[in-house]
Amino acid sequence: MRRRSFLRAAVIGGGVAAFTGGLWTGAAVGGPVRRIAESPYGPLLPADDNGLELPEGFTSRVVAHSSDKVKGTSYTWHDAPDGGACFVDGDGWIYVSNSEVEPGGGVGAIKFDSGGNVTDAYRILEDTRRNCSGGATPWNTWLSCEEVSYGYVFETDPWGVKEAVRRDAMGSFNHEAAACDPVRKVIYLTEDEPDGCFYRFRPNKWGDLGAGGLLEVLVAGDGTSGKASWVEVPEPTPSEGDTPTREQVSEAKHFDGGEGCYYASDRCWFTTTGDSRVWQFNVADDTFGLAYDGDGELGAVDNLTGSSFGDLYVAEDGDNLEICIITPDDVVAPMLRMTGQDSSSLTGPAFNPAGDRMYFSSQYGPSGEFSDGYTYEISGPFRH
């Protein structure tokens, strides 16, 4: 593999921000660890029939293509598939996927049985704007985020039974991703702006976002590690022409293009594509630091997810179109690489409930057009 930069748990707030619960643990270091190591899955093999370079033992299949009906269903798969997540559905599961187009946007879903066969596909949100990423809630809804100025979060039903609802209290800004913390009962939010902020939303009633809540912004110094605090955003739903949320609190910390967001075991990880960094926020004591400093090696970091084993999977929005794994023992390596689609980006990585299948999309496909997006399933011996 190429040499990459990984930062072990950083020294922040006078202590060591060690990862817990099967995620990272390790001694603090003063700077990036340069490491040449092989992926736990081994090297990537030559591209398969779908143009994917995968490790030995892994296979791929196309489950949907924009502008075409999902096989065996009447639903035409949406353009520019983006962020996604999986939900348990009896013995099977549902994969939801955003559509990052404007106008149109929205969210589509594919239902699978216990054997991974597609049984249905349908729309769960429509007529919104550039639905980029989002996050799953513990009460089995999908938060779909509009990546536009003064955009909103929509709470959707993966089964398509309940009507989607706009959750204004979660703020009006250039939303990207969301991650739920069931311990502290808050939702973390990223903002895709060159000077974007990191937010948290504290619902008045956990499990009922319709009951309103408080939007707060992270406040900290200019460095890459330290102690943070939270300040209420004075006007969470500004209209066009009003002061944006990211400019309302003068001491708010700014990040270069907030993207994916993932929570597990008292840590919230989020990516910033402008500087190819993965940040770790210790939600237990409000300290933050870098989990990975790309230094140009893992480029254009975007959506990310994690496995029960403790690995992170980070998708690239461009660069050389890889989904990379960051392991508990500091290995950063490509888990897969897309070939023949240089004008695309990889989006929406998510595992099925058993952890043996991963879904993701090539947003623009070989042609680089919104209407040429492909959604894939990777099967194999994932660590879980």
Rank of each mutant, 00 (worst) to 15 (best):
D195Q: 07
F201W: 05
N204V: 07
E216Q: 15
W206M: 07
A228W: 00
S225D: 01
E216S: 06
V217H: 04
L218M: 15
P203Q: 08
D195H: 07
F198N: 03
R202W: 08
D195S: 11
R200G: 15
E193Y: 05
G213Q: 03
G221C: 13
G226M: 10
G210K: 06
D222L: 00
G223H: 13
G207A: 12
V219D: 13
G213C: 02
Y199H: 11
W206E: 06
G196H: 02
E193H: 10
G207H: 02
F201V: 05
F201E: 00
T224Y: 11
L214D: 12
K205M: 05
R202P: 14
P194T: 07
V219T: 14
A220Q: 04
F201N: 08
L209Q: 04
L218R: 08
A228V: 14
G210A: 08
D195L: 07
R202H: 02
G221L: 04
C197P: 12
C197D: 03
R202Y: 00
G226V: 12
S225K: 15
L215E: 10
D208P: 07
L218A: 03
E216L: 13
F198Q: 00
G223Y: 01
D222T: 15
P194R: 05
G212I: 02
G210Y: 06
P203I: 00
N204P: 06
D208V: 10
D208H: 11
E193C: 05
A211V: 03
R200Y: 14
R202A: 00
S225R: 14
E216W: 09
D195N: 03
G210M: 05
F201Q: 06
E216K: 09
R200T: 10
G212V: 14
K205S: 01
G196R: 02
K205Y: 01
L209I: 01
W206R: 00
L215M: 09
T224Q: 12
V217K: 14
G221H: 01
G210E: 07
E193K: 12
Y199F: 00
S225G: 08
G223A: 11
G221N: 12
N204I: 07
G213D: 05
F198T: 12
G213N: 01
P203D: 00
E193T: 04
Y199V: 12
G226Q: 15
T224G: 09
L214K: 15
P194D: 14
A211K: 10
